[in-house]
Design a protein around this nucleic acid. Structure first.
Length: 298
DNA sequence: AATTGAAGCAACCGCCATCCG
DNA sequence: ACGGATGGCGGTTGCTTCAAT
């Protein structure tokens, strides 16, 4: 059985849109609005299905579409949001005015995924040089964590670097508000509620693990209801409340969320933007300096 | 100059959620 | 309450462009 696809009709054109079709579609929508997408092509005199028209309009012809390459800020936003939301392209796009979910999805698949996968490889090399870090890299959930962490740390590193370069005195404050803003927006809602119906306040795992404080950035702004806290002081206080989050994320892997975070924050930070051809060269003879086990692990 | 493979991107497809009669 | 219609979303495909050989 199954429902019929709206473009199953004979005589419906497929493939690339011609400038003439674009012109007709734009003129029609400007004059009448899109109304029902299904009836639009017939009314406008286009041999396309409504779905195709909607896609063409939303992804390409809409007047507020922002063309051109992604800025570093947009890139960082995508990485961060993808770390939080996964492949929720529409949600990510809603935070990037003028960008479409399709564009972001393509950008992720063609650029960012590759970059993060190369980070994964670096991490594997990095971890294999240390016996004590018993990470099961083949585990899907751990791999997801690696993606998640890679994305987050890369974005943080980039943002902090840009912030310091552009405005050493004030920009940190702005960037520190980024996660709280997203967390408190509709995008963050499912994550705020992840701990169950009793609504027990549980802080974002991202913020729990955030390296802002670890790397010496401290919030100077307490206006936001979402307050950045010292990891050392606050994480342990909330650990019990938030344990389900960590379990969800790490599954049955051999390291806990927080353990992994402690390792990877430092490790990834070091792996980013390393000058020269040999990414691992900087580690030689210096591993003990770069890497320290958390107190609980020593 | 021709060929080939990779990368980038627009568009399609099918599933799912919501709307509406 | 139910079922069909519609819109939205994410995954995938395939065409185009470009660089390497």
């Amino acid at each position: 059985m199954g429902r019929t696809y709206c473009c199953d009709n004979d005589g419906v054109k497929k493939g690339a849109w011609s400038p003439e079709e674009d012109r007709i579609l734009v003129q029609y929508i400007q004059k009448h609005g899109h109304g029902s997408w299904r009836s639009l092509p017939k009314n406008a005199g286009l041999l396309r299905c409504g779905k195709s028209c909607r896609l063409r309009w939303t992804n390409y012809l809409r007047p507020d579409i922002k063309r051109g390459p992604f800025t570093p800020e947009e890139e960082a936003t995508i990485i961060q949001l993808h770390g939080m939301l996964g492949n929720k392209w529409a949600s990510i796009a809603s935070q990037l005015p003028g960008r479409t979910d399709n564009e972001i999805k393509n950008f992720w698949n063609t650029h960012l995924k590759k970059r993060l996968s190369s980070l994964d490889q670096k991490l594997q090399i990095f971890s294999s040089s240390w016996g004590p870090i018993n990470i099961k890299w083949e585990s899907p959930s751990t791999q997801h964590m690696v993606h998640w962490e890679s994305a987050r740390v890369e974005a943080e590193a980039r943002l902090s670097m840009e912030s310091l370069l552009l405005n050493p005195s004030s920009s940190v404050k702005m960037e520190n508000n980024y996660f709280p803003r997203i967390w408190n927006s509709e995008v963050g809602e499912p994550f705020r509620n992840i701990n169950g119906k009793d609504g027990g306040a549980c802080e974002s795992p991202i913020l729990q693990a955030s390296s802002w404080t670890k790397f010496g950035f401290s919030s100077v702004d307490n206006d936001n209801e979402f307050q950045m806290m010292s990891i050392e002081q606050e994480t342990h206080e909330q650990e019990d409340n938030c344990k389900p989050n960590a379990d969800i994320i790490t599954g049955s892997d051999s390291i806990s969320f927080n353990e992994f975070t402690d390792y990877s924050d430092t490790a990834l930070k070091l792996l980013l933007d390393i000058p020269g051809g040999n990414d691992m060269e900087f580690l030689e003879g210096h591993t003990e300096k770069f890497y320290q086990l958390p107190q609980s692990q020593v």
